[in-house]
């Protein structure tokens, strides 16, 4: 004895198959795109400050009016290869920056004829205030605004002042969080100048 039932065969048209196939392609593209964006976001958020021993991230600067370096109104880190670079992040609203302003200028004047470059980058500052600060402290070494906050993002600074001392090969030698001291600047610069390239 056997039981019989009646069933109807599903009618699947070519149109249905095509639309489902295209739908799958689009949906997978969207899913992969969203995952890629998330991955990119995670990678960016997990970036850490470049530390001593790491290659210093490249940066481009357009100096403030009245400032230049070797006749250039704009330059980048690559231009400074072969020189010790003292990269200082500061802001006119930063009280601690004012404590080191005179020292940085004095050190620049001391070393400017050696293979040393001092570079100041303003962080989240208002241009008229930054220029007034430079005038107030009689800062003569090249200074530039951080347009688009790109340089401070690449160096992952967590505040100001922060100073990166970079050797002649473009490798970070020291990261100073907070104001620099005369002893630190002199010791580090002399040591890096003695190293050669």
């Amino acid at each position: 004895m056997s039981e019989t039932i009646q069933t109807s065969q599903p009618e699947v048209t070519t149109e249905d198959t095509k639309s489902v196939r295209w739908g799958s392609i689009i949906s997978w593209t969207v899913v992969i795109g969203i995952l890629a964006m998330l991955a990119w976001g995670l990678l960016n958020s997990s970036k850490t400050r470049p530390e001593a021993g790491e290659v210093a991230p490249e940066f481009n600067m357009q100096y403030f009016n009245g400032y230049e370096w070797e006749g250039l109104s704009a330059s980048n880190l690559s231009n400074m290869q072969g020189k010790v670079v003292v990269l200082n992040f500061w802001a006119s609203w930063c009280l601690e920056c004012k404590l080191e302003a005179d020292l940085l200028e004095a050190s620049w004047r001391k070393y400017q004829n050696d293979d040393v470059v001092f570079v100041g980058i303003t962080y989240a500052d208002v241009e008229p205030n930054a220029i007034q600060y430079l005038l107030d402290y009689d800062v003569t070494y090249p200074n530039a605004p951080d347009l688009g906050t790109i340089i401070s993002s690449d160096y992952e600074i967590t505040g100001v002042p922060e100073t990166f001392i970079i050797d002649k090969r473009g490798v970070i030698s020291h990261v100073q969080i907070g104001a620099v001291s005369e002893q630190l600047l002199t010791t580090k610069i002399d040591q890096l100048l003695a190293q050669g390239e």
């Binding site: 004895m1 056997s2 039981e3 019989t4 009646q6 069933t7 109807s8 065969q9 599903p10």
Partner: peptide, 24 residues
């Protein structure tokens, strides 16, 4: 498909092996 009507497309006869075993 689960609730077919008389006009719901071609009809085929099918035996269900499980039901057949059970009856046997």
């Amino acid at each position: 498909q689960e609730a077919p009507t008389s006009t719901a497309g071609p009809v085929v006869e099918q035996t269900l092996p499980a039901a057949d075993d059970y009856t046997a």
